[in-house]
């Protein structure tokens, strides 16, 4: 029996073989199509999820942004101007009119603040900071009132350090103090 005869006696086998080989070739050439489409679907799904998340997050953001801008505008008005050295120094001496105390020295520290300056643990990005050393002579009550006023006054200030010494005799109420005051200022 020749090969042709064998082929003729198994027509279904031949047709099946052709179909199978065609399918294998088809799968081979279009094999990564599904994977590509699935990857694209996943990426798009992630993108849609992100967009939906953005949509939720942005809810009411406009109003928050407006109120935040108002707050920041209020802060800007309270900032010291680093260029106005004389005005800034005079500001501290003007406390003498308000308190029963003598301000013997007001000095600005020209060096960068290690805490709030560049690479400091609380580095400021939008503002700069000015540090003033104040020497005052007063009593305990006025000293406390002064520290409280520094904290609550219009310019944004914070007492970072102080040294308070009792002067005079044992019964004396006089105090001398050195106070480090940090003042928030416009970015230089």
């Amino acid at each position: 029996m020749s090969k042709i005869d064998i082929i003729k006696s198994y027509p279904l086998v031949i047709v099946s073989l052709v179909i199978t080989l065609t399918c294998v070739a088809f799968t081979f050439f279009r094999g990564d199509r599904i994977a590509t489409l699935e990857a694209r679907e996943t990426a798009l799904y992630e993108q849609i999820r992100l967009i939906e998340k953005n949509k939720i997050n942005v809810n009411g953001l406009n109003e928050d942004l407006a109120s935040l801008k108002e707050v920041v505008g209020g802060i800007e008005e309270r900032l010291f101007d680093p260029e106005q050295r004389a005005v800034n120094t005079r500001f501290f001496y003007s406390y003498e009119d308000e308190f029963d105390m003598v301000i013997t020295k007001v000095a600005e520290d020209a060096t960068e603040d290690p805490v709030l300056g560049k690479k400091g643990p609380n580095e400021l990005k939008q503002y700069s900071v000015l540090t003033y050393y104040l020497s005052v002579k007063t009593d305990f009550h006025e000293f406390l009132r002064f520290l409280h006023t520094l904290h609550t006054d219009e310019p944004i200030m914070r007492v970072s350090e102080f040294q308070l010494f009792k002067v005079g005799g044992k019964d004396s109420e006089s105090l001398e103090a050195q106070i480090n005051v940090r003042v928030l200022a416009k970015a230089e």
Binding site: V71, L124, Q126, Y127, I156, V159, S160, L184
Partner: peptide
Amino acid sequence: VSSNIIDIENFYDAPETMH
């Protein structure tokens, strides 16, 4: 804008006010 507020928080970052 909120980075300005973060600056304010950093500025006041201390355990307690001195008075």
